[in-house]
Write a protein that binds this DNA or RNA. Sequence first.
DNA 1: CCGTGCATGTTGACATCGGGAACATGCTCT
DNA 2: AGAGCATGTTCCCGATGTCAACATGCACGG
Lengths: 221, 221
Amino acid sequence: MEKRAYHHGALREAMVEAGVALARTGGPSAVVLRAVGRRVGVSHNAAYRHFADREDLLAAVAAGCMTELGRLMLRRTAEVREDDPVQRAWSRLEAIGRAYIDFATTEHGWFRTAFSGATAHPGAASKADGRSDPPSGAGSGTEAGAGADTTDPYVLLGRQLDELVAVGAVPAERRPGAHYAAWSAVHGLSALLVDGPLRELPEDERRLAADTVLAAVARGL
Amino acid sequence: MEKRAYHHGALREAMVEAGVALARTGGPSAVVLRAVGRRVGVSHNAAYRHFADREDLLAAVAAGCMTELGRLMLRRTAEVREDDPVQRAWSRLEAIGRAYIDFATTEHGWFRTAFSGATAHPGAASKADGRSDPPSGAGSGTEAGAGADTTDPYVLLGRQLDELVAVGAVPAERRPGAHYAAWSAVHGLSALLVDGPLRELPEDERRLAADTVLAAVARGL
DNA sequence: CCGTGCATGTTGACATCGGGAACATGCTCT
DNA sequence: AGAGCATGTTCCCGATGTCAACATGCACGG
């Protein structure tokens, strides 16, 4: 009983995809109902059958951008080669941080969009719309499951912090609130570099900034 | 030879002021040319005699909001009562950080606006339009001088970090890049709380987050 | 002391956007 | 086969940023 082909087939998904594409180069302000409609070959106002308003669409697009960020994080952490468990845990945390900052600076539009839509994070999750059978279709991979293969950046960071505690790199009593410290630091630098007063920082200064922030995070945990 | 009363007198300043007022409750998107015009009793398009376009006006308004942030920082640091120089330096840094976060959460609109306009920070400053005589008028205080009484948050933070080094609380070799670490952390938390996924965090969690971030910054320097 | 010039503000128009209302179309189920 | 409703379209509106042409009044040169 999936949501199946009516007139267009899967307009909602197509529109989100188009929105993500537009957001990539133009940021959130480029996610314009009429442009999205044009892009999927549908007249504007068609969006209103799938989204309450522009903000609703933007929230869905933002989730898509967030998924892209999560994907990059996963890729980078998977690349870590390290034998010592403690070193590996630290390296993975650094990989996550660098992925975050790199994503922000190279995928400007996606980053700004990811944090423009609503969707608060902690607490609310998994209200579960009881998806029963995972269909065989070679998944689009866009939906973020809450399982082990999630692309949710928040969850990814949390797991890495857990690993640091598990291997004894970080004292357990520091764990509560640790994600706030780590997340804030990388997000702050990213925001300042992308939108903020550090926008025009030269490349070498950017590197210094990233290194300093990541080192400070490690010391601060 | 100041810029003096033509038709309106000081339309530019009035418009920036109006913009700041609008931004306070509505954020950057509330800084609308027509609304600003209406507010100062001037028809729209008048702005084009003083600003290149909306973005230009928004940048000026953003500077005004930034000044408000700086003012709060100054007020809070001035309130610090502490005898030991080292403790005092730390307390002042914390005061700055709390001011930043409090400003973001209580002055939602101002905060978002302050970081929406352009104006990159380091390097460029003080191109100096050679203001000669500081008039006697009980100053509006809106212009940020580069002097000792600046309200520029960036400069304020830098000074506090200098003090920490001066009293020996922070090793000098950590000074370069230190403002990136401190600024990023508080800005990141602020951004996440105001606009981002932490938007709906309950009050006690917000406090935990702020405490954790500030403690981590202190340890990380 | 007067008139010209330019800075300042106004009016009108246009394209684009988000959004509402009424209408058309074609799956899907009885 | 026919009815009903989800889906998409068309027409419309007010608001907004921006351009072009126009009006006005202060300042400065003669």
